[in-house]
Design a binder for these strands. Sequence first.
DNA 1: CTGAAAGCGCTTACAG
DNA 2: CTGAAAGCGCTTACAG
Lengths: 325, 325
Amino acid sequence: MSIKTVSRVVTGEANVSPERSARVTAAIERLGYVPDPFASSLRRSDRRTGTVAVLVEDLANPFAASLHRAVVDVMRDHGIVTLSASTDDQPAIERQAVAAFLSRRVDGLIVMASPSAARWLDSVVGGAAPIVLVDRPVRGVVADVVRSDHRGGARHATEHLLLQGHRRVAFLGGRRSSFSARERLAGFRAAITASGVATAVVELGLAGSDAAEAAVRRLASGRAAPTAFFTAQNLLTLGAVRALRGIGHQHEIGLLGFDDIPAGDLLDPGISVLAQDPARIGAIAANRVLARLDGDNSPADLTLVDVSLIARGSGEIAPSRKGRP
Amino acid sequence: MSIKTVSRVVTGEANVSPERSARVTAAIERLGYVPDPFASSLRRSDRRTGTVAVLVEDLANPFAASLHRAVVDVMRDHGIVTLSASTDDQPAIERQAVAAFLSRRVDGLIVMASPSAARWLDSVVGGAAPIVLVDRPVRGVVADVVRSDHRGGARHATEHLLLQGHRRVAFLGGRRSSFSARERLAGFRAAITASGVATAVVELGLAGSDAAEAAVRRLASGRAAPTAFFTAQNLLTLGAVRALRGIGHQHEIGLLGFDDIPAGDLLDPGISVLAQDPARIGAIAANRVLARLDGDNSPADLTLVDVSLIARGSGEIAPSRKGRP
DNA sequence: CTGAAAGCGCTTACAG
DNA sequence: CTGAAAGCGCTTACAG
């Protein structure tokens, strides 16, 4: 029997007599033969390798880890295997990782990119594989983007605080440069402006939990202190929690944070947050890549994933008498 | 110029005149040529693909995510790329994933295996690639194992509770079948026995946080109530925290948990825990695989990674008068 | 130092 | 329905 006949059986091609087909199948079983997908891809016209790559800032970070897992699961269901890397948002590492994956002929890329990718992502990949951007877009790179609705979420959260009666709300933000930070601030500002009655106190560039703690302590004890805080991010929320407990006002001052914090329900009061849905982002991104590989040529599109408000107490505190006009 | 000369330059082989070498390098640069590692591997004698696979229960779980990231980082530094999968501890998924990776000719495997792997792991892999087991061994599979010192850690933690004066300590455990669960219980028992004066209360098979909460409430309110609890795992610790706060005894009854819990320091009292070091486990496992690929033929070995006690308050509570003999 | 020939495991494009 | 020949991008094993 020729090698070609075996090839036909393995690839499920037509035109093999049932009898020979059965013999081949039996032999494969007996010998434990496993086809070599790379040798196969080498000669195939489409050169697909059944491999996809995921690049995130930090694979150990809960947000990225959930997103990553969702991608891997979807790909697995399609017989595609996933390569991954952490970039720590460092351009050099990011670029090297993309190059390494491309040299391995990945069929597609899912990337949580650093801003610097604007300068090279397009040209390095050069159409060799579809790219789907997650968590944030990259200026100038035309590709599908799947991310949370940072702005809409922040606006919704701020409105939630205003609804409790707060009229002076502080926004605590981190590095100004990040896309999500800008979007969240914009959402906050939109809500304050739309209310027509509330005042915003904006504190940006907070480097981490300690900086947030200090800022909350300072603002809360100053004149015209805010009656509620909206923290734009995980670590800042933890800092705010510490500050409010430190000054004993955790039950008088409102707090709502972007991104869920672990054990947020075990604290007293429970910490109200805006939770992202990284698994959904990952799954959608994976399906975008698959669609592109399937020949979808529609223009690059943006998928916004809803963020959900989890009310646990801290965001439902009404302003105390003292704080009211 | 022949293709062979180019090959020599690309692979860094000797015997190329500096002049031709320079010309080749220039052309590579200009054309953006990227060697195809699979075509290369196809003809090479060692058939290495520069690919390694990681299988864990759940890539989104913090323990597995940290371990995974560490592996990926070490491999990246060696020019090796990492494939990964979540198995959810389901034999069928696990087996299919191993087969998929093997068919892609991975050079090595790092596996957090389910007990069922005992029946097939060896024969499926069949020496095609070195295996390193993480988090737990698999009965009958002879391979390097890198895992936490569950037993030693549990013993140490229990001794820590006894040191505070506790004489009646409860152990709350989950599914009895798991390796780590058994080891942790053994460590606990060893400490109690060695003390000569303390009594153990053992409660196993708790399915999750709610079951643990119920168990703590029941035990704490019964006759001869334990003055301290040792929870064998993450979720059980959270359940215990809830129970103790629910009955208002969080400052009177000791609590120490295996596995760190997020925000453990924000609670009041802070929750003392035994923290594993997944990143270290991952890094060591990665290096074991690399060593095996480098030709290390020494017998399979076991690396125990220390677990560290983080004292935050709940584990340093002395038994209240009432609880003493 | 250089290159022509063969071959890795597979598929394509034909001819029967 | 079947198979012989050529070729995917590379390296091996030679001969010069």
